[in-house]
Write a protein that binds this DNA or RNA. Structure first.
Lengths: 212, 212
DNA sequence: ATTACTAATCATCGAGTAG
DNA sequence: TCTACTCGATGATTAGTAA
């Protein structure tokens, strides 16, 4: 149903579609289509405006995210896992990485889903604009999800992690859902990369990114 | 289930997966997973070899075609409809187009699904190798299907049609499932293109192909 | 351990119909 | 017309268990 609505354009503009039409295209009855819509509405995947007997439908961002996830899965089958290289130079952050990676809410998730306890701090890498553009494709990859949570009266956002070999060392690129910077990216690893790789600000680094 | 198997690599090599594992990953019981497999096997989408209690699974070509169709649908949502231009020069076929397009089995399907009664004959266009390569992407598009059938003791293969503007005229590129040539493509239209466009062998033509 | 049958349960569907 | 309710039938799922 979501796929059908997306094809009809409900991803970018409200679309008028009767439940009878939807039912026909889905091969189910009008009643079933109506129920599906109610269900999707309840799950906040579809927003409906009922103007005198005609419903206008449009898809919410979570619905598009869901469809994009499916798209990613199918693309992985036919195009294979994504792979790219990105290079930049080491830079200093504002100590935010250390702060976030000391939050238990993040630590348990990183440990469970990445398979290692993260060193409490991130390595910041500044990208040149051309490199930043190459990073855009990573958005369409299937990464390891880290969910947002609330703690101590504030909310911590979610992120997606992508396996990386940073100068040959196992690490993960972290992409926060709400990213502030575009030219600085952060890596997390089981060890302090700066020490292990003898890096200082301005040193060039190269990361091999792999999907999954 | 098919998607899951494809991800596990069952598209190119047999994979050992218990029904318990499959059930877990699908969020259903072991019994249900077993039933799904039996069903898929009956529909010839999965081939199973049961070696002493361990089943090895692999996906059949029809299953991959089914998944590819899904992939196409999702890609259309996020990448938009495909569009390309292809050029070549008019050539003479062997009169096969006329023969095929006089088969009622094809005529009714073309008429219903393309929206016009096809002129009984195709326009053949010879491509240079560089152009032929650009045609490869069309394989991943969603086209109009024309199914194969049997008539008069022989079988006629299926094909996929793609909307084209050939020198501005509405027509369809025909891609037979079992294509013999790679450098010659065929177009069908409601009228005799050769006459309407005043074409003779060797004349250059340009086709704007659009998905859907 | 497996796969898969049977029986009971449960969810889903469409017909009829109300608003 | 439209959406969406109730309800009986149909279908699917799981638990228990056999092979």
């Amino acid at each position: 149903m979501l796929q059908l609505l997306a094809h009809a354009g409900a991803d970018h503009t409200p679309v008028v579609l009767t439940s009878r039409e939807l039912g026909e295209r889905l091969g189910v009855s009008q009643q079933a289509a109506s129920r599906y819509l109610l269900d999707l509405e309840r799950r906040e995947l579809v927003v409906r405006t009922l103007a005198n007997r005609r419903q206008r439908l449009h898809l919410t961002p979570p619905a598009m995210e869901l469809l994009r996830g499916e798209y990613r899965d199918y693309r992985r089958i036919f195009e294979g896992p994504g792979r790219t290289t990105i290079s930049g130079e080491v830079t200093s952050g504002l100590g935010e990485g250390r702060y976030y990676l000391s939050q238990p809410g993040y630590v348990v998730q990183f440990t469970e889903r990445l398979g290692y306890a993260p060193f409490p701090g991130t390595l910041n890498v500044r990208l040149r604009p051309s490199e930043a553009r190459r990073l855009a494709v990573v958005r369409d990859w299937n990464g390891v999800r880290v969910d947002g949570f609330e703690a101590g009266g504030r909310t911590f956002g979610g992120a997606t992690c992508y396996l990386a070999l940073l100068n040959g060392r196992r690490s993960h690129l972290i992409r926060p859902d709400r990213s502030h910077y575009q030219d600085v990216i952060e890596f997390v690893a089981p060890e302090r990369l700066r020490t292990r790789l003898h890096l200082k600000d301005g040193d060039p680094v190269k990361a091999n990114l792999e999907e999954r």
